[in-house]
Amino acid sequence: MLPELYNYWVVIVLMMIGFYIVIVQGNLIKKLIGLNIFQTSVFIFYISVGKVEGGSAPILAEGVSVYSNPLPHVLILTAIVVGIATMALALALVVRIKNAYGTVEEEELQERDLRC
């Protein structure tokens, strides 16, 4: 089972790593890195799903009859763009948090909120 479906296993492992980082890490930047890994795992999932065994790139060419499915790849391009936008926004937020609080550690943030 493992060999044929190894792509799914990779996805699951990456996803869990990402999720774990998001939950456990107190550093806002590291949280974002985790989030990024989490998203990336899904991208890989889409891309590997579209791959057809022995298929070529979906460009019409002579002698090629089996093509990989291009749709998931196109979809994931959109998702990647969305991911980048999210990441840019998140980083911008972190910059402003750093300016406002002087820290990017979750615990210190909460501490400073409680103090005022």
Partner: peptide, 24 residues
């Protein structure tokens, strides 16, 4: 507000990614 937005961003992105997985 910044902190709230950040938290919502994390949760919201996880939610959206879950939806993306479901769609996949």
């Amino acid at each position: 507000a910044l902190w709230a937005a950040y938290q919502y961003l994390i949760v919201g992105t996880i939610g959206a990614t879950f939806i993306l997985i479901g769609i996949g």
